[in-house]
Design a protein around this nucleic acid. Structure first.
Lengths: 206, 206
DNA sequence: CGACGACTAGATAGATCACTCTACTGATAC
DNA sequence: GTATCAGTAGAGTGATCTATCTAGTCGTCG
């Protein structure tokens, strides 16, 4: 049944496929899909053309979709960690925005949403990639919706809140990067934290 | 002192420069900056290379910045029309989101924010274009801030509201295009209208 | 061993990219 | 008339793009 690669879980070095994928997510999210050439990805991941087309026979489009999916699960895990069950949701909402603002400042406004740029670029031109982006976004919304529901917010309202938070953060990424100023992210952080607090069921005094 | 072109305001046909610029804004906003070739722009605007480099000696980058600026003033005027002085701001906020949702649906989710895609693409790679995008966004925020201030909302809060509305709409554009569903735009429309209503000064009963 | 498949390696092709170049047109200025 | 200049026109250039193609490496299995 063929060879089972021994380095699937090699400790020292990530597999070629993984290195290509990681370089893709980074370059795509920073320079966009069309703006990133395969050569740049190959150079960053120290891989030849042959490997790329071996692992991704569908070429750049398949690679793009895979990169979106990888970035999607990565960011979903981050959101899940910030909105962990033992942290109250209002604080988590504040922490989320403050974390995003801090990362923007630390990376010279380069690292924002790893998918948004590609999503806007390709959502009218590539169905596979568009679908991958939609699935990634939905997975984030599901994490948020579940968490809001767990703290007693009704299901429909929980999803609305998740959508509102998502949109506010994504929009803030755009504005912050263009103006090179993280203030908007902190502004919407306060607003969203207030929204979440207001949606919480009747506060029990002690 | 040189010739003054007689067709500067030709009634029948837009000038070559304008046609190039209009084609650029349309193609850039739909396919992104890197994803749009100069040939496509020239073909759509029925212009030769010579004209492009005559009017935009800076090449594609200058053209991109000019397209951003043009789209920016166009959208600013649209926002100003929706938030006209004789329309109450809560209704205007609802109308804004509903209008955006309707356009998305009518254009098969192709026409969203004319700048967002390019802004994300180039804000880490081209200073002139980044600056043009920032100026465009700021001009929209100024329109909203002024309007909110005019109805009695304090200046700092007025700007915060403008930022919150901007971010919500931009984020919704991303989510709606990726999922091909205008629901999120309507969701944030309701939320933002409520925010604006809550920020209004004490309602005087008749 | 020898065959096989997974994977690596990079030269190469053909298209397309942004851009430059020279030539041409037509109107104005003197 | 003639010089000047804005603007039009498109062939051509070198670089870069995605993708293909052949060849080689390495570990496993029969």
């Amino acid at each position: 049944m063929g060879a089972m690669p021994a380095d699937a879980e090699a400790p020292g070095r990530a597999s070629t496929r993984d290195r290509i994928l990681e370089a893709s997510t980074e370059l795509f999210s920073r320079q966009g899909y069309s703006g990133t050439g395969l050569k740049a990805i190959l150079a960053m991941s120290n891989a030849p053309y042959g490997s790329l087309y071996h692992h991704f026979p569908g070429g750049k489009e398949e690679l793009g979709a895979a990169a979106i999916t990888l970035a999607g699960t990565g960011y979903r895990d981050l959101v899940a960690a910030i909105f962990a069950p033992d942290i109250d949701v209002v604080t988590a909402t504040s922490n989320f925005a403050e974390g995003a603002a801090a990362v923007l400042e630390l990376t010279d406004f380069a690292d924002a949403c790893p998918i948004a740029t590609i999503a806007l670029e390709i959502s009218s031109t590539s169905e596979p990639m568009r679908r991958a982006a939609a699935a990634a976004f939905e997975s984030w919304l599901a994490v948020l919706t579940d968490r809001f529901h767990d703290v007693g917010i009704g299901a429909p309202r929980a999803r609305e809140l998740a959508i509102e938070l998502f949109c506010a953060v994504e929009g803030a990424f755009i504005l912050c990067r263009a103006t090179r100023d993280a203030t908007p992210m902190r502004t919407i952080g306060r607003a969203q934290a207030a929204s979440v607090a207001a949606a919480l069921p009747h506060r029990v005094p002690r």
